[in-house]
Simulated scan of single mutants.
Amino acid sequence: MSVARSSIDVASTPRKSLLSIGQVLAKLTPEFPELSPSKLRFLEDRDLIAPGRTPAGYRTYSSEDVERLRFVLTVQRDQYLPLKVIKAYLDDRDAGKNPSLPVTNGVHGASMGDDQARYTKAEIVEAAKASAGLLEGAVTAGLIQPKKVYSGSDLVVLTSIVEASSFGLEPRHLRGMRLAVDREVGLISQAVNAANGSTRAMSPSELRDKGRELSGILTTLRSVLTHDALNRLES
């Protein structure tokens, strides 16, 4: 289900209740500094928002549009969810359903998926709007472990791969990410054990909790470094 195009009649709607692109940017850029007109148009192209139009064709945004934008941008920034997952959630909400977003691990908002969810091969392919071949490619690349029943985390991974494929990336191109994760887990394990020092050995659950805490810190660091590197490409 796509977002219905706004049918706001600007002639009958108080002018003060509608905002231009510039006014929306002024309202939201303090929270989202990277927001731009092209980003707004991109979200519109993805059917995540549906601004109205003036008779001259200029976009207009209602207060509901602004709050929807704020939600999309917040979830994308804080939970690292693919736009396709966010759109599916909003489509269900618009249809009057009571959907839930994939849960987070509570540390810097990194999305971990709902590990209580279970999917067969056919179900996860349908939920991610992927193909069986793409799932097989993800398994071959080590991005998803081979199994008969898949988890919510697997769904987030597969959905992200589907999103990446729109940029021409295939699972084989992402194999390096699996290797980088394995190296990072080794680094985290060493750091957590070293920080524990000569005190009592940590239980597996304590080791996981500490590891997730450090993982959240490293995720934020990696995100900022990537962001800065991309900014340098523009200069």
Rank of each mutant, 00 (worst) to 15 (best):
R70P: 11
G197C: 03
A194C: 01
D154W: 05
L187V: 12
A11E: 15
N193S: 07
R53L: 14
A164F: 01
H108P: 00
L233K: 09
D9C: 09
R178T: 11
L73R: 13
E67S: 15
R46Y: 10
L225K: 08
R178P: 00
H173E: 11
L81D: 13
E170Q: 11
R5D: 12
R183T: 03
Y80V: 10
T104C: 07
R41Y: 09
I124E: 00
T60W: 05
S111A: 15
S12G: 07
K27R: 14
K87Y: 07
E213M: 06
A4D: 11
K84G: 11
A4I: 13
I161G: 02
T140P: 03
R46E: 15
P51Y: 09
G96T: 13
P82A: 09
G186P: 15
L218M: 05
K84A: 13
S153V: 02
K121L: 11
D78P: 06
A229N: 02
S12D: 12
R172C: 01
V66I: 15
G168N: 08
V156N: 11
A132Q: 02
L40M: 10
R59Q: 05
T199R: 06
R183Y: 06
L221K: 14
T74H: 13
P30T: 08
G216Y: 05
K16D: 11
G186Q: 15
A201C: 06
V107I: 12
R93Q: 13
P204N: 12
I144Q: 01
A56I: 13
L35E: 03
P14W: 03
D182S: 15
D78E: 14
P14A: 07
D154F: 03
P146N: 09
A110T: 14
S151H: 06
T74P: 07
D47A: 13
S235R: 13
V157G: 04
L155C: 00
G176K: 14
V162H: 03
A50H: 08
A50F: 05
P82K: 09
T74A: 13
E123P: 02
A138M: 10
V75S: 13
Y150I: 04
Y80C: 08
N98F: 11
S203G: 08
V75T: 15
S63E: 15
L207P: 07
F167R: 12
V224W: 03
F32S: 09
G113F: 08
L69D: 05
K121H: 09
L143A: 01
S203Q: 04
V224R: 07
P204C: 12
V224F: 02
P30L: 05
S20I: 07
D94L: 02
A141I: 10
Y119S: 03
E170F: 00
V24G: 08
R178W: 06
T219G: 11
G137A: 04
T226H: 06
F32A: 08
T13R: 14
N196V: 03
D47M: 10
L158Y: 14
L135H: 00
L43P: 09
L134G: 00
I124R: 00
S153D: 10
S7H: 13
K148S: 10
L90F: 07
V3H: 11
L101M: 12
